[in-house]
Every structure is written in C-alpha cells, then in structure tokens.
Nucleic acid binder design. Sequence first.
DNA 1: TACAAATGTGAGTAATCCTCACATTTGCAA
DNA 2: TTGCAAATGTGAGGATTACTCACATTTGTA
Lengths: 213, 213
Amino acid sequence: MEGSAVSGSQDGQIASPRRAPSQQRSRERVERMLAAASALIAEQGSDAMRMGEVAERAGVSIGSLYQFFPDKRAIIWALAERYTTESQACIAAALAGVNDAEDLRRAFSELVDIYYGMFLAEPVMRDIWSGTQADKALRELELADSRANAEFLTAVLKRLRPSADPEALETTAFLIWQMGEAAMRLAISVGRQEGDRLVAAYKRMALRELLDR
Amino acid sequence: MEGSAVSGSQDGQIASPRRAPSQQRSRERVERMLAAASALIAEQGSDAMRMGEVAERAGVSIGSLYQFFPDKRAIIWALAERYTTESQACIAAALAGVNDAEDLRRAFSELVDIYYGMFLAEPVMRDIWSGTQADKALRELELADSRANAEFLTAVLKRLRPSADPEALETTAFLIWQMGEAAMRLAISVGRQEGDRLVAAYKRMALRELLDR
DNA sequence: TACAAATGTGAGTAATCCTCACATTTGCAA
DNA sequence: TTGCAAATGTGAGGATTACTCACATTTGTA
C-alpha cells in the first residue's frame, strides 16, 4: 500500500508529490514541521513564514522539509486540510439529528456561533482562509469543503421541505454556507462589536431563508 | 500644490510615497506603466506579473517604474483604486433616485446584474479582488469601498423605513453588500450555469431582506 | 544661458524559494 | 550477524525576482 504523500499544488493541480513518511522517526519529524509552521503562521502570518525558519524551529534541515513537502504552499495546504477534516465531522454531527424547523434553528445558530468562535480563536485558520483566494489549490480545497458542508445542510432542507425543487435547495444551501464564511471573514476584520452585530444579522438572514418564512 | 504621489502599502499602512509625475511626459509614462500592468494581469494574473516585464512592456526602465510606484503592490493598488472610484459613481447614481420599494427592487436588481457582468468581463478586476484578502492595503481599500457603497444603500433604506433602527439598517446594508461580493466571487469560480443560479439566489435573498417582507 | 528640480537608467544587491549530490540510518533478507 | 537497498537527512549553492542607487539626461524658468 502506497500512502499518498503530502502534496501541494503547482498551478492549481496537485503537484509533484513527495515521499510519504513511512518510518516512525520521519512521521514525528513531519509533525514537528507542521507544528513549527503553525506556530510561525500564528505569529507572523503565512506570507511572512520563511521555509528556513520552519526548518530551524522544527529542528530539521531545509532539505528534510522539502523531502516531505514539495513547496511552501503544500505545508499551508496540509494544515488547512486538517482543519477542514476536523470541522466537517463536527458539522455533520450537528446537523445529523435535525428533523424539524425548531431543530434547524437551534443547530444552525449553534453552528454559526462555533464557527465564529473558531475564526476568532484560531489565528492560523484565520490566516489560511484569508489568503485562500490567492492560492488556487487552497481555493479549491475551500470550495470542496464548502460544498461538502453545504451538502449536510441540503440534506436537512430536503427532509424539511420534500416538495421543493432539490436543485434550488442545493443552491440555497451552498450560497448560505459560502456567505457565512464571507460574513465571518468580514466580522473578524472589523471591530469585535460590529463583528458581533454582523454575525447576528447574517444568522437572522440565513435562518429566514432556511426556514422560508 | 503637491499632488499626492501614487502610493502603496508596506504592511497595511500607506507606504513610502514616490514622486508624483508633474510633467506631461512622465504622466504619459505612468499611464503606460499602468496599462502594461493591466495587460499583464489580464494575461497571467497579478501574482505572475513581473516588474521587469511591466517596465519592458511600458517601454521604460525598471528604475522609472520604481520612481513612481514604491513597490509591486502599489501598481495593483492604483489599478484597484481606479475601479472603485469608477464603480462608486455608478452605484451612487443607480441608487440616488430610489424612493419606494419597487424602485429599490429594480435598481438593486440592475446593480447586481451590472456587477456580475463586470466580474465576468474584467479579468483584471477579478484577479485583483480575488487576491484582495492576501494584501492588507487592498483589503482595506475593498473594505472602505464596501462601506461607501453600503452607505448608499443605507441611505435608501433609511428613506424607505424611517422608523427602523438606523444602526440595524447600516449593518444590514453593509452585510448585504459584502455578501454580494462574496456571491459574485463564488459565482465566477464555478461554472457559468451554476454561477447564474447563485447570483439569482443571492438577488432574491438580498431583496427579501431589503424589502423586509 | 544657467541651473536646480524632475526624470531616466540598468547593473547590482538582497532576500528567499527550492535543488541536488552526497551522507547517514533503518528495515530486512540471507 | 552481515549486507544492502530503500528511506531519510544535510546544507551549500543555483535561480529567480523585487527593489536600490549612483549617475546621466531632460525640462522648466529666472
């Protein structure tokens, strides 16, 4: 079995893969590299993160870094991928048990709060998703993530409104999800007070649409 | 009189200004530089745009380029600034005559179509606003632009709903505007057909909120 | 005509991503 | 245990590119 190597992107496509760590030693080292990158991004942002600094802080040589990551973006991509995997499970769980409008209201409201809290608390995630637009591979990862999350929402809507046009529900869910991310990004880039108001307004708008009142 | 020089950003603040072109000759050369940059961004994206290439295509030396633009981002910023100035006038005009709900529906609907058309037709604008998040100065320009545009919308809402809480109207207008830009960005990054559906769905959602039905 | 300010030039500097030829360690079959 | 191929580790150096600077030329004007 050939575990897929940590990969990144050259111009949007998945790029030259690197060796996947197969020994315990190297797996630990890759973890250290990711941890170092994460710390540096939290401190200075991914743009200012220097590959040499990542290697130094992880206690490995620059060559080792490139043994497992084809380029700088691949490290950021790997971190982003962990976040999406983690949060998707959380979202699926939150929306799985929704069976009526009141459930949906409660679950969606909680979800927005959790997401907003994450955006506020996680400088790394914030930085990565902010820079998302500049990097094609990241943009695609986010898009895929958004689609996956929107699908959970679509499933709920189909349950609640079985007579509605399925394609319209998909579009609505996708749009609402994507707008939520936009609203969060906006909210964290203005002051805390205005940010809270914006998130609350988004929540109200989205719920009005989801519940179709 | 000391015309403000073309400026850019170092780390979010306005950066070391360069000389403003005061002679006819240099003003024409600056125009050529901007035109060259614009063409290169349209062809390859702002990330792949090389300063040397801009200079060459404009028929000036690299030194001349840096005489008027403190850094690469300043060129992009200058192009972005032209777009915002242009479109703000257009938006203000479209919303100025709105006096009732039906006016608003028509004007907003047209505005969205025009914006969407611009996003589809202008590769430079699209590229610049896509990369927006990565650059602090651009992010701030976009935010300021959004606020300005949202204010036109706020003014309309205050006219239509004088008894509503003004702060709430401001938040609504700002959010709707920002979400519109997010919806456009999303729409152009998926296929044309799905994009059209997303824009239509956004328009419907936004109008429902604006008209508060 | 003189001369200061504005403008123009491009070889060179600095920063940084990434490669590559070679060294070392590990897993495993004989 | 020993031999050896595969995996892993290294860091000097190549390549690219944004940006500088010392100096040359042009322009406005007194």
